[in-house]
C-alpha cells in the first residue's frame, strides 16, 4: 500500500470524496467566487501577519524602527510586509465587493438572513483590522489616521465617548493607542473573524437552496469541478498579490512625532469617501455639528444595511440598483478626493 493509499484509507477519503461530489453548486461566473477569494485573503493575512509578529515591536518608541528593520534587514521581510499590506487592501476590497454583489443578486433574502448578518459583522471586523493595522507602523500618517478615525467615532450616537476611548486606549492618542491597536489587530479581531467566518459558512451551507433566485440554473459538483475552478481563481489572486507586492512600493513614511503638525495627504483608500465628505461639509449643518451630522447619517445607513433582509424581504430590484449606484458613488467620490 502506498503512503497516499494508507492516508486516504485512515482518513476515510473515499467517503469524503463521495459526499463532496454529491453536493452541487450553481454554475456561476466570477462573482460566485468572490466569497471564497475573500476567505483565502484572510488566510493569507493570518499567515503573513504571524510572520510579522516575529520581528514587530508594539512599543511607541520602537514600532517604526522595527517595521523598517523588517523591510530593510530581515531576509524577505520586505516581501512579507508588502504581501500583508497588499493582501490587506484586497481583503477589504473583496469584502466590500462581496457585499455589493450579494446585495445586487438579492441573495440576502430569507432564509439567508443569518448569512447576511454574519457577513456584515465580517465586513465590520475586516475594516477594524485594516484600521488597527494601519496604526501599527506608528508613522506620522498612522498617528493622524488614528486621531481622525477615533475622533469621528466620538460622534457615534450613545456609545461615541466609549468607542473613542476604546480606539485610543484613553482620551488621547498616546503610546497606549498603539498597544490597544496591536492587541486588537493580532488577537481579538482575528479570533472574532475566525468565529464569525465559521458561522457565516455554516449559515450559508445550511440554506443553499433558497439563494441565488431560480432553481433551474445549471449546477456543477462541489468536488472536483467547483474546487478546481476555485483553485484557479485563488492562484490568480495570489499572482495578483505577489505582483503588487513585488512591483508597487508601499512606503512606511516618517515616524510619528506628536509635536509635528499632521501630515498632508490622504487616508487609506477605504476612508477616502468619508475624507472627501468631511472636508466638504462645513462646521455646522442644519444646526448640528458637521461631523456629528455625517457620522449620524452614516450610522443610520449602516443600520439600514444591517437590517436589509428584514426591510426588503422579497429582494426588490430597487435594492439591486441601489447597490450598484452606491458602489459607483463611492468610487466617484474617492476619485474626486485623489484628483
Amino acid at each position: 500500500m502506498s503512503t497516499g493509499d494508507w492516508l486516504a484509507d485512515r482518513l476515510g477519503w473515499t467517503r469524503v470524496e463521495a459526499y463532496l461530489a454529491k453536493r452541487s453548486v450553481p454554475r456561476h461566473g466570477f462573482m460566485f467566487y468572490v466569497g471564497g477569494i475573500t476567505l483565502f485573503l484572510f488566510l493569507v493575512q493570518v499567515a503573513s501577519g504571524v510572520l510579522l509578529t516575529l520581528y514587530y515591536q508594539p512599543d511607541a518608541a520602537q514600532a517604526h524602527g522595527s517595521v523598517e528593520r523588517i523591510v530593510g534587514e530581515i531576509s524577505y521581510g520586505d516581501l512579507v510586509r508588502a504581501v500583508h499590506v497588499w493582501a490587506g487592501d484586497l481583503f477589504v476590497a473583496s469584502l466590500m465587493l462581496h457585499m455589493f454583489i450579494v446585495m445586487a443578486r438579492r441573495s440576502f433574502r430569507a432564509p439567508q438572513e443569518l448569512t447576511w448578518l454574519s457577513g456584515i459583522a465580517l465586513l465590520a471586523l475586516g475594516v477594524g483590522e485594516a484600521f488597527t493595522g494601519a496604526v501599527l507602523p506608528w508613522s506620522e500618517r498612522a498617528c493622524m489616521d488614528a486621531r481622525v478615525g477615533s475622533e469621528l467615532a466620538l460622534y457615534v450616537p450613545l456609545v461615541g465617548a466609549w468607542l473613542r476611548r476604546l480606539m485610543r486606549g484613553g482620551e488621547d492618542v498616546t503610546s497606549n493607542t498603539l498597544a490597544h491597536a496591536f492587541g486588537f489587530h493580532v488577537a481579538a479581531l482575528p479570533a472574532a473573524l475566525t468565529f464569525v467566518v465559521a458561522v457565516h459558512l455554516f449559515a450559508r451551507s445550511r440554506n443553499r437552496a433558497g439563494s441565488a433566485g431560480a432553481t433551474d440554473v445549471p449546477t456543477i459538483p462541489l468536488y472536483p469541478d467547483f474546487f478546481v475552478r476555485l483553485a484557479v481563481a485563488l492562484t490568480g489572486v495570489m499572482v495578483l498579490v505577489l505582483t503588487l507586492a513585488i512591483f508597487v512600493e508601499r512606503p512606511i513614511g516618517p515616524p510619528a512625532d506628536p509635536r509635528l503638525s499632521s501630515a498632508l495627504g490622504l487616508p487609506p483608500w477605504y476612508f477616502l469617501p468619508m475624507h472627501a465628505i468631511v472636508r466638504a461639509v462645513p462646521g455646522e449643518l442644519l444646526g448640528i455639528d458637521g461631523p456629528r451630522f455625517l457620522v449620524s447619517a452614516a450610522c443610520v445607513i449602516g443600520l439600514a444595511v444591517v437590517a436589509l433582509p428584514f426591510i426588503d424581504r422579497r429582494g426588490s430590484r430597487l435594492t439591486a440598483w441601489l447597490a450598484w449606484i452606491a458602489l459607483l458613488a463611492l468610487i466617484l467620490v474617492s476619485v474626486r478626493a485623489i484628483t
Binding site: M144, R147, V148, L152, L260, S261, P291
Partner: peptide, 12 residues
C-alpha cells in the same frame, strides 16, 4: 492646544 477642534488633527 495644537489640536484642531474639527477632528483632532495637529495644527501648525
Amino acid at each position: 492646544s495644537a489640536i484642531c477642534t474639527h477632528l483632532d488633527c495637529v495644527v501648525a
